[in-house]
Write a protein that binds this DNA or RNA. Structure first.
Lengths: 202, 202
DNA sequence: CATAATCATGAACGGCGTTCAAAAAAAACT
DNA sequence: AGTTTTTTTTGAACGCCGTTCATGATTATG
């Protein structure tokens, strides 16, 4: 006979372990960055055996995908709540989005970097669901661009949104990596502002 | 008694081995990308013992730095020879530079990616000489910007050069990584063109 | 040729992600 | 209650990696 309660409790325990591992992994990621994320450190921090990680995730890559998924959600929330109050021009919205993106990247450096540093091994591809979360982010800037250039087609606009995002992203990335001649951190926000200004000129 | 000839010959042999290893490593990098670069594969391709690599380089990182240094030199040459013939506006020069950069990134993807993917372990820093090579690249676009905005101060211009480079870089990067919603490859060059157009508007 | 100095070699080490036989725990049954 | 079956958890062990270093080979000097 099937004991439904027992089964539910087991699923709960499994979910709790999963959550403990994710929490531990996120803490490790924040402290040490993606390249410092080790299965043994994560599990000992989560208070479980090394093998437990592999009972809950296929491999480390899948755990990182879960972390990135959460970071993406946080980033989405941050961007959404960055909209300036009252009615505002497309340019103002773009400036607010870019500023919020820059702040997020600075304030959550390791988590943000992991979004872009992480690569799946040859032949493995990210789940469709994960790709969706990314597209949603980009689409958030389409309306502002549409307001600025009403005559441009929807397809071109979608492309221009990616280009705009990528341009801002590049400036933030090279600055935070402090590698390859990036903008000094103290000037980053003003330079991103200048960039968006140029990109949103009529 | 010192045998000068013998000493020279040994230095030569050492240099030849070094070059063989660099050549092998570059071939491996081109084929497999930075994450596929393995000491054992490199040395067996170079036809020497595993340990030989460590007689010539401190560690793999230093070998990668050497590879990146050469890629940077190639990139510099490519950009230098991209200048449009005849007298041309700052905007035209910028467009030519951006197009050449985009082509280089596409045609030498793994080597170009290695420039940005490679990180030294915590606490180790790139030699000054290597940082210089990077700065020279960026400075190549300053004159064009100066022609476009003669009234801007030298300091602001240097910053704007980095921002301009980083913006183009970001678009190319996200497109080639095919991760995070980047521009499809077929549209990359035209989007970079559109970006530079906006960035060089008076 | 003998001896000393130098160099090249690849087995061995420690750290990593991952697996899996075995132990522990839980569930089902009598 | 005990006994058996099923499920879950565990960490030693495996293969791969960068790196080291005792050992043997090679070359320079006496």
């Amino acid at each position: 006979m099937i004991m439904v309660n027992e089964m539910l409790r087991r699923e709960t325990k499994r979910a709790e372990l999963r959550e403990r591992i994710i929490t531990a992994a996120e803490a490790e990621l924040i402290e040490k960055g993606l390249s410092g994320l080790k299965a043994r450190d994560i599990t000992s921090r989560a208070g479980c055996a090394l093998g437990a990680l592999y009972n809950v995730f296929d491999d480390l890559d899948m755990l990182v995908l879960e972390l990135n998924s959460r970071t993406l959600a946080d980033l989405g929330t941050t961007l959404s709540s960055s909209a300036p109050v009252g009615s505002s021009s497309g340019r103002q919205v773009l400036q607010a989005l870019a500023a919020a993106y820059t702040d997020f990247a600075r304030d959550h450096q390791h988590r943000w970097m992991a979004l872009f540093e992480h690569r799946l091994p040859e032949g493995k591809y990210k789940p469709e669901e994960y790709r969706m979360e990314q597209i949603i982010l980009i689409d958030a800037i389409v309306p502002s661009l549409q307001e600025l250039w009403p005559e441009i087609s929807k397809e071109t606009l979608a492309m221009r949104a990616r280009t705009t995002f990528a341009a801002v992203h590049g400036v933030v990335l090279l600055s935070l990596q402090q590698q390859f001649v990036g903008i000094p951190l103290k000037d980053l926000k003003s330079e991103v502002g200048a960039l968006v200004e140029l990109l949103s000129r009529q």
